[in-house]
Write a protein that binds this DNA or RNA. Sequence first.
DNA 1: CGTTCGAAG
DNA 2: CTTCTAACG
Lengths: 267, 267
Amino acid sequence: MQQVTTVNVNGLRAAARKGYAEWLADTGSDVVCLQEVRAEQDQLPVAVREPEGWHAVYAPSSAKGRAGVALLTRREPEAVRVGFGEPEFADAGRYAEVDLPGLTVASLYLPSGEVGTERQDEKERFMTAFLPYLTQLRQRCAADGREVLVCGDWNIAHREADLKNWRANRRSAGFLPEERAWLDRVLDPADGGYVDVVRAHHPEQAGPYSWWSYRGRAFDNDSGWRIDYAMATPGLADRAVKAYVERAASHAERWSDHAPVTVVFGP
Amino acid sequence: MQQVTTVNVNGLRAAARKGYAEWLADTGSDVVCLQEVRAEQDQLPVAVREPEGWHAVYAPSSAKGRAGVALLTRREPEAVRVGFGEPEFADAGRYAEVDLPGLTVASLYLPSGEVGTERQDEKERFMTAFLPYLTQLRQRCAADGREVLVCGDWNIAHREADLKNWRANRRSAGFLPEERAWLDRVLDPADGGYVDVVRAHHPEQAGPYSWWSYRGRAFDNDSGWRIDYAMATPGLADRAVKAYVERAASHAERWSDHAPVTVVFGP
DNA sequence: CGTTCGAAG
DNA sequence: CTTCTAACG
């Protein structure tokens, strides 16, 4: 059995002050992928940076206080890689991957974008460069006899079931037709070739959402978006026995605006 | 009996979240002078902006989130004036005055400065322009049969007894020889002609300090500065029966890095 | 609405 | 060390 969790922590220092450490101590996962760390390693308390029993890999952004991904693994990785080959995003704190026995796990933080801004152009450039990398990654790993799991905040809701208010958001960044079509390609067996493990295990239901705005009563009303995904190669997806979102019980115990997304694999 | 308090609130919104409102509800003062309000009127909750039983006058800075003085009076002022005639500081949120029967009260926030910077030059320009105004104010009010009380954060410790660590601070902004000499002139009977009411009532003691840095253990060690003054015309100073600093009992109940300074006048 | 930063104090 | 703003989300 192997268990992997991904969560956008929205500032690891703030999350650690609020309950992230307790959550981590309780998780049964073997790998935890973090996004929006928003700190350099040496800005983090040691117990947060290198929690007892974990190996940690950080890929901060060169822009202070922005983005930043990390991976925590119970076993030491066989290899670590930061970035995915596109120079523009080499030190953007948006992608890192580790090799474990028979498995490559990645932590991804796709730019969030905003319609009509340069940030949306950046998101599109990222998507354009990242899709061929995903295909290449799958092929390379297949040649090495590895499965692949790309976890993270993809900042796109794929289908109408993936956000509460899809009608109101048809022109919103994160649910644009071209973004949804891009995810179609990531999941297309003839293209990216990945499987959305949580959706595969919950084919019909609305959600389960993984992000709720801090504004208004979004969390209380479960007015969320499913934008955090575990995307697996088909062979790995077939081994998934469980896939779920850990929605906090109450607003009070939330330590991020995102919830952890976990997938459990059998042998 | 008439009682006037001055306090630098270091952000009225933050102070109001921490205990300012309770302090105000308990004060027996008739006039409260505030400095570093750091908000426009409409950024303040109504109960903070216009507390029940008070008239409020605000003089915000045109620079958002900076400076800002205010006066709260139990009786409606006969007149209100903002600024002291120097155009550079007209909307700097550093000076306002109100006329009450027989008394003009001002709230002053003198620039804080830092040696070797443009901010120190600004402080000096303020001082240069403000001293003649103080003299003029006293004379004008004398002609009207009014006493004057200029309260606020003057950002200068006058003498060695006015800060804990005077030796270490001989080259620090706030205790420079030229700044101390300027306060000498404010207090010189032949020049500004004002009386430092707290010092007049506590001629020998160290302090009482009115500001402690938030850094380190400054408050716990009473490593403070006396930079908040009530400067009175001599006739008014003669009527002072009490003058004191309300040092908070504990670090926990502080709602500003400054403490309220209060003077009580007899008939 | 919340997390950063940077300027200011 | 704390307050604010701005940018970002």
